[in-house]
Design a protein around this nucleic acid. Structure first.
Length: 325
DNA sequence: TTTAGACTTACTACCACAAGATGAT
DNA sequence: GAATCATCTTGTGGTAGTAAGTCTA
């Protein structure tokens, strides 16, 4: 925790001085209006669109397959959706994040295209199997379980307090070759490979043989892209400037990703607003529910916190509320 | 380098009771 | 089949307690 805080503070300072633009990571503008930030990519049109322009261009019956922009870099079309992280990721960011360690590599990855009218923001991105379910349901039913499962299966060398996506990002500088060797034996853990037709970014979706190499290499100073090194020919050494820039970009991307996930994933879903409203008005003793007294009953009848009114108030709160029937 | 203690962080159990679910009539 | 009633189960939030991790001497 402290490591992450320090990382955030340090990185935040750097980002704060120059903002996202400093790293060259400002969101891609909409190709149509050029005003708002693009949020999705239409394959048929070959255009990056904001929500408004997409709504104008694609109606509910639209058959144009579109994908969200990567939530990490906000530049490339998302290639997959990670249900555990509830995030749409491009091939590059997916490789960065999900090849970082064996836990992350087990996240359930789903194809991203959707059709019809733009519904809601891409968090979580609707999965094909849960089209009829609410967004909250999709997140609760799948991602939480998937991530919880991944966290419950520690691997040698894992830090229990770090999430799968953040561990190596926070400790890149401390990786050593022994750990790389220790990963060789487990890098073949099965990851569902998406059909090649979803390879929207023009690259491969997964790197089953090179994922660990990719992660390790990008975590070190000498960055050698897999595409270059995979051919067997020795890749030319990148310049120091390029290497440093890549490292900072990746760090900034991952930091943004972590912040977003942190803010998103722990929102409580209220299934019964009426029960929540009632619980909030009930008397407590040291946090525990206490028996009602006659005075409590009298106050409730006179005061503004009758169950009915409280339920109404609670329904307007910031919680995700499943209406009671 | 190891150990002990202090400190921090995250998680869980607990409580009462209305609302919801279920089965019987 | 629909309506009513009785009984059982579920879900709700704030706090204390505890486990686990981190830091320092």
């Amino acid at each position: 925790m402290k490591v992450e805080e320090q990382t955030v503070v340090g990185g935040g300072g750097g980002a704060g001085q120059g903002g996202a633009g400093f790293w060259g990571l400002a969101g891609r503008p909409c190709d149509t209006c050029a005003v708002d930030a693009a949020r999705l990519y239409c394959r048929l049109d070959g255009a990056y669109l904001c929500a408004g322009c997409d709504a104008r261009a694609h109606g509910a019956g639209s058959r144009h397959a579109r994908v969200w922009l990567c939530e990490v870099c906000e530049h490339a079309p998302a290639a997959v959706t990670c249900r555990a992280d509830a995030a749409a990721l491009c091939a590059t960011c997916d490789a960065d994040i999900h090849s970082a360690n064996p836990l992350a590599s087990r996240h359930l990855l789903l194809p991203t295209p959707f059709f019809g009218a733009l519904a809601d923001p891409p968090q979580p991105v609707p999965s094909p199997s849960s089209a009829a379910a609410t967004q909250e349901d999709a997140e609760d039913d799948g991602s939480n379980e998937a991530e919880a499962a991944s966290w419950l299966l520690p691997e040698p060398g894992d830090s229990p307090e770090d999430s799968a996506a953040t561990f190596f990002a926070d400790s890149d500088a401390y990786l050593d070759l022994d750990f790389v060797r220790s990963m060789d034996g487990i890098k073949a853990i099965g990851v569902p490979v998406a059909p090649s037709e979803l390879d929207l970014a023009g690259g491969t979706l997964f790197y089953p043989e090179h994922s660990m190499n990719h992660s390790m290499s990008t975590s070190e100073v000498a960055v050698v892209p897999d595409a270059l090194s995979a051919g067997g020919a020795p890749a030319p050494a990148p310049s120091v400037a390029v290497v440093a820039s890549k490292g900072k970009e990746r760090e900034a991307r991952l930091m943004r990703y972590r912040e977003k996930r942190k803010n998103r994933r722990f929102q409580k879903t209220i299934r019964y607003a009426s029960r929540k409203a009632y619980a909030e008005t009930r008397p407590r003793i040291k946090g525990r529910f206490a028996k009602r007294t006659a005075e409590d009953d009298a106050l409730e009848q006179d005061g503004p916190f009758s169950p009915a009114s409280s339920a109404h108030l609670a329904s307007d709160g910031d919680y995700g509320v499943v209406p009671s029937f």
